[in-house]
């Protein structure tokens, strides 16, 4: 029997995303675990948030021991942009981000929702306070403050993600005949004074982003514990679903669900990278690139 001399086996070193706790984190481990076995070949970009209410007040919604993990991934790894949003709750028996040595002290992570990103709008709501606004096509709105233990560079990743989702990457087609509408929640007339992603984004000439990313590699110690691989404990979530700010709702959704009319450009004009079902892929994805690479590339 002949042996084949090939390349030496790939030795994977944890990248900066892992060290920052934004890749290979609790959410990624959960959805890749045998229990879910979802998107197993796709990178998951994730961060811990605290849910807050109301602009300008920013009161924590949940108990001190609960955080929200928000993550994005791709249903198909070759998609150039993420197309899935994941939301999970984490309960920390010994306080947020505490270390654990026994299973009973391990954080309890519960996957709550999977949302196609085409039905979600991500906005940078308050850059100073690191608050993200997540709005679904059904007008469910979450305000999520990035956890204080994340270094600033992690919020810069989210800013970059928002930008990418809105405008695409450099590899994204510039053909004007192809409508690029990744985020398909239509803009509603609003008197809100929130900072829009456009106005809050650092310009390309700003050096801060790259510097932040470099600095991040040196300031990620506090998140090493998150990227460790202790046995995850998953269980049924007995608490309520993530609360939302109902005052923001502009549609009466449940009174007549059948006749509900959602303005949905999504259903009519979604682009290749927005397809969820791999079977629908009759064209080659333009460029294979992982989400992590897209995010980490300055």
């Amino acid at each position: 029997m002949s042996t084949i001399r090939g390349l030496p086996p790939e030795v994977k070193e944890p990248g900066p995303g892992v060290e920052l706790g934004v890749e290979d984190g609790l959410l990624c481990q959960l959805i890749h675990s045998p229990e879910f076995n979802l998107f197993s070949n796709s990178v998951v970009f994730e961060s811990n948030f605290i849910q807050v209410t109301k602009p300008r007040n920013w009161v924590d919604v949940s108990e001190g021991s609960t955080t929200v993990i928000l993550g994005v991934t791709s249903s198909v790894p070759s998609l150039p942009l993420p197309n899935i949003l994941l939301m999970a709750n984490v309960t920390w028996p010994r306080g947020q981000f505490s270390t654990w040595s026994t299973p009973s002290d391990a954080p309890l992570i519960t996957l709550r929702r999977i949302l196609p990103l085409k039905y979600v709008e991500l906005q940078i709501c308050d850059q100073l306070q690191r608050i993200l606004r997540v709005r679904t096509v059904t007008e469910k709105i979450y305000y999520l403050r990035l956890h204080k233990k994340h270094p600033e560079s992690v919020f810069q990743f989210w800013i970059r993600l928002v930008k990418i989702l809105q405008k695409g990457l450099s590899i994204t087609t510039k053909d004007p005949r192809i409508r690029f509408t990744h985020c398909l929640v239509p803009k509603m007339p609003s008197s809100s004074t929130e900072t829009t992603p456009e106005s809050s984004l650092p310009t390309s000439s700003q050096p801060s982003e790259t510097l932040m990313l470099l600095a991040a590699e040196q300031t990620s110690d506090s998140f090493l514990q998150l990227s460790g691989r202790p046995q995850l404990t998953t269980d049924r979530n007995t608490d309520t679903a993530i609360e939302t700010d109902d005052s923001e709702k502009t549609l009466s959704l449940v009174a007549s669900p059948v006749s509900l009319s959602i303005p949905m450009r999504a259903a009519l004009s979604h682009s290749l990278w927005e397809q969820e079902d791999p079977n629908e892929h009759f064209l080659q994805a333009p460029v294979a690139s992982s989400l992590g690479e897209n995010l980490l590339r300055p």
């Binding site: 949003l85 519960t110 996957l111 709550r112 929702r113 999977i114 949302l115 196609p116 039905y119 679904t136 096509v137 059904t138 469910k140 269980d235 049924r236 979530n237 007995t238 309520t240 679903a241 939302t244 959704l253 449940v254 669900p257 509900l260 959602i262």
Partner: peptide, 18 residues
Amino acid sequence: DKRFQPVHDLTIGVEFGA
């Protein structure tokens, strides 16, 4: 959860329970 919520948001994507 052994409770009834008469007003419920329209589900998009998937919501999980166990």
